[in-house]
């Protein structure tokens, strides 16, 4: 093996990544174990937050502000969006902070740095699936049954993971040089939440702006999830397609940027 200064664009060394997949497994396991260690509620934390947000939204956005919910009971309407949003916001935040948190590791030991921001994006899926099971229980309670389009849910999950990892990669790589990122992320996510159909249905957005609205990949994820599971609207193919494209662009450009920035991580972090 030859070690020399790298110049220009770098391809991702897939063979090397493959040889480190056990490390990825250990890192994901660590992330999951650590999240709720030395807590009283433990794994319950996964549902506590979306559950109380759901209640707050139901009372204020639904009962008081009377926002429409495409004919679905408010609790299910909000909870279905919350589980996807919690994953997205959590993965972006933790991914974005991951390099700074692992500063010591990065400046002492070599391994593909890509594993660090990808870890929270993968570990977050466990929380997502647990919250998803709770959603299924709520649907049973309200007698709502999924449509056949639920077969496309894995596709929606993929869009969600790619979009969150892509944004996470950008933020993580930027945070090494610019610590502003730590302060920016919560703010960015707050704006992002209102730009996504969480407390309101996407059908509130005028039809002529819908495709523009779908550039936000979270729109595609949540609308797809609601349409497939709750049958709110006919399956929104056009929105899903646009969101899929933006999530791919986010992920690939995130990878490229990360790859470029990676060479100086250990020097300036």
């Amino acid at each position: 093996m030859i070690i020399r200064p790298r110049k220009g664009w770098q391809l991702i060394d897939l063979k090397e990544l493959n040889s480190y997949k056990e490390l990825l497994y250990f890192l994901v396991a660590k992330e999951i174990k650590l999240r709720y260690r030395q807590t009283v509620l433990g794994g319950l934390w996964i549902v506590v937050q979306p559950f109380f947000l759901m209640i707050v939204f139901t009372v204020f956005m639904g009962k008081l502000a009377k926002l429409p919910s495409d004919g679905i009971p408010y609790p299910v309407f909000y909870f279905s969006a919350m589980i996807a949003w919690q994953y997205f916001a959590g993965a972006v935040t933790r991914s974005g902070n991951s390099l700074i948190i692992n500063m010591k590791l990065i400046s002492r030991i070599y391994f593909p740095r890509l594993l660090i921001p990808l870890t929270p994006a993968l570990a977050g899926l466990l929380d997502f699936f647990i919250a998803f099971a709770v959603l299924s229980g709520m649907m049973l309670y309200f007698h709502i049954y999924p449509t056949v389009m639920a077969l496309f849910l894995p596709f929606g999950v993929l869009i969600m993971v790619l979009a969150a990892s892509g944004v996470g990669l950008f933020l993580a790589a930027l945070s090494v040089k610019y610590r502003d990122i730590t302060a920016t992320t919560p703010f960015l996510l707050q704006l992002w939440m209102f730009a996504s159909p969480i407390v309101y249905p996407a059908s509130m957005v005028p039809v002529k702006y819908q495709l523009f609205y779908a550039i936000n990949p979270v729109t595609g994820v949540i609308e797809g999830l609601r349409a497939a599971l709750l049958g709110t609207v006919p399956f929104p193919w056009h929105i899903m397609l646009v969101s899929a494209i933006t999530s791919m662009i986010l992920f690939i450009s995130g990878l490229i940027y990360f790859q470029q920035a990676e060479r100086y991580f250990a020097d300036i972090i």
């Binding site: 030859i2 070690i3 020399r4 200064p5 400046s107 030991i109 070599y110 250990a266």
Partner: peptide
Amino acid sequence: FKILSRVTEPTGGYAEIN
């Protein structure tokens, strides 16, 4: 050591590791 273990890359020169 950091260069030989690939934690950081050299500004110039190269190293061959077998």
